[in-house]
Design a protein around this nucleic acid. Structure first.
Length: 408
DNA sequence: ACCAAAGACCGTCAAGACGC
DNA sequence: GCGTCTTGACGGTCTTTGGT
């Protein structure tokens, strides 16, 4: 089982509505492709103070209990333990429901970061609580019937920014049977729009500012490579910049001489191609830092010394708008007015083509990443709906049996 | 160990969408 | 209309897997 992050949160309890709003936790469950790995214990219950939230997004309500003692101890609270399965796709959840002297134990499957259903079969042990218990991991429902026959669902509602595949906060709230059925219908009816999902994903990515004009977008927990903030914060003064897992080497360029007038709207360094260094020591020559990409994907900023005549071929000036050449905001590369001969025009054409290819390369990567994310969401959704279907079939079966018993 | 098929990944092109 | 973005399609390369 994982190590605990042990965030202590307070739990407010009211007669009609209770809420657990979880503060943002560190997302250290990134898998191979940046996918969330389901691990840890989830314990949802009537609300007990001292509830702990683990770094992997699961909740442990106090008093903390191991799987073993939940199985053997009569508790006054409804408790659930999620046991992650190999591969991380699902977790088996054991729910312990207080029911007089003998607690009910229910076992089901939940999906990580997705709506999941755990439903207890209708039976004698649940009669003091009611017939149905459904526990959902996110955007989810725990509901149980009260003794008076009326159903008073307890919903687990996330307070995350989006209702997609990510999100952290969890709210426990009581609601009515109508709400519950409506929610269930909504969950079944909702179809995630590819574009919407991507927008939500991108809107949850915090932006780390590196000062003047350089911004680096930090990948979220599901996004794969993580930024090394310590590297980026010092990169402008040292020789290596690590951004989103990609290393940018400044190749012995004296930091004091470089004017990194870069920046882009999306926070990445794409489009960074050629930068002029103001080298005070050599008046007749200048240095161009050229972008190069190594075989291993590492990107290099290679300084190239040019003569004064060569330098006339390029001018870099800063501006506040994106250029027609597609260079990122803050960098405008304009051919000097002296570019007239065919060779220079060809070079310019070639340079523009290289830049376009670079941009499209990056775009294709991003597109594929989003597509994978989307497919993952769809797969999770399929699993959730299958679970719901299973639960509904079981519920139908139980109701049928009950109906038959009453008629006998 | 070797080899072929399958799968994953990547770069590029092109067409359509979209914003200005 | 133009520039940019997005994404499907295609082909190439690399890795994995199963059979011999």
């Amino acid at each position: 089982m994982d190590t605990l992050v042990e965030e202590q949160i307070s739990v407010a309890v009211s007669s009609s509505q209770s809420a657990i709003d979880r503060a943002t936790t560190s997302s250290n469950q990134t898998g191979q492709n940046g996918t969330a790995q389901p691990t840890g214990i989830l314990s949802a219950s009537s609300l007990v103070s001292g509830t702990q939230v683990r770094g992997n997004g699961t909740i442990l309500l106090m008093p903390r209990a191991s799987e073993k003692n939940i199985a053997t101890t009569v508790s006054s609270t409804t408790q659930a333990i999620a046991v992650p399965q190999p591969g991380g796709a699902v977790s088996i959840v054991h729910v312990s429901i207080p029911s007089g002297t003998q607690p009910m134990h229910v076992q089901s499957v939940i999906q990580p970061n997705q709506q999941s259903v755990i439903q207890a079969p209708g039976g004698t042990g649940l009669q003091s609580l009611g017939k149905n218990v459904i526990l959902l991991n996110k955007g989810s429902v725990i509901h149980s019937a009260e003794g008076d026959g009326g159903v008073h669902p307890v919903q687990l509602i996330t307070t995350a920014k989006g209702d997609g595949c990510d999100g952290d906060g969890i709210t426990l709230a009581l609601s009515t049977a109508e709400d519950e059925s409506r929610k269930r219908r909504e969950i079944l009816a909702r179809r995630p729009s590819y574009r919407k999902i991507l927008n939500e994903l991108s809107s949850t990515e915090p932006v780390v500012s590196l000062g003047t004009n350089v911004e680096v977008k930090e990948e979220s927990g599901t996004g794969g490579d993580n930024i090394h903030e310590s590297d980026t914060s010092t990169a402008l003064a040292s020789n290596t910049i690590t951004v989103a897992g990609t290393q940018y080497h400044t190749a012995q360029v004296p930091a004091s001489a470089i004017q990194l007038a870069t920046g882009s709207q999306d926070g990445t360094l794409q489009g960074l191609q050629t930068l002029t260094m103001t080298n005070a020591g050599t008046a007749a020559t200048g240095t161009i830092v050229q972008y190069a990409q190594g075989q291993d994907g590492q990107q290099f900023l290679v300084p190239v010394t040019l003569s004064a005549a060569d330098l006339q071929a390029y001018q870099i000036r800063t501006a506040g708008v994106t250029t027609s050449t597609g260079l990122p905001q803050g960098v405008v590369m304009t051919p000097a007015s002296t570019i007239q001969n065919p060779q220079q025009l060809a070079e310019e054409t070639s340079r523009r083509r290289e830049h376009r290819l670079l941009k499209n390369r990056e775009a294709a990567k991003e597109c594929r990443r989003k597509k994978k994310e989307y497919i993952k969401c769809l797969e999770n959704r399929v699993a959730v709906l299958e679970n719901q279907n299973k639960a509904l079939i079981e519920e139908l079966k139980s109701l049928k049996e009950l109906y038959c018993q009453k008629n006998e």
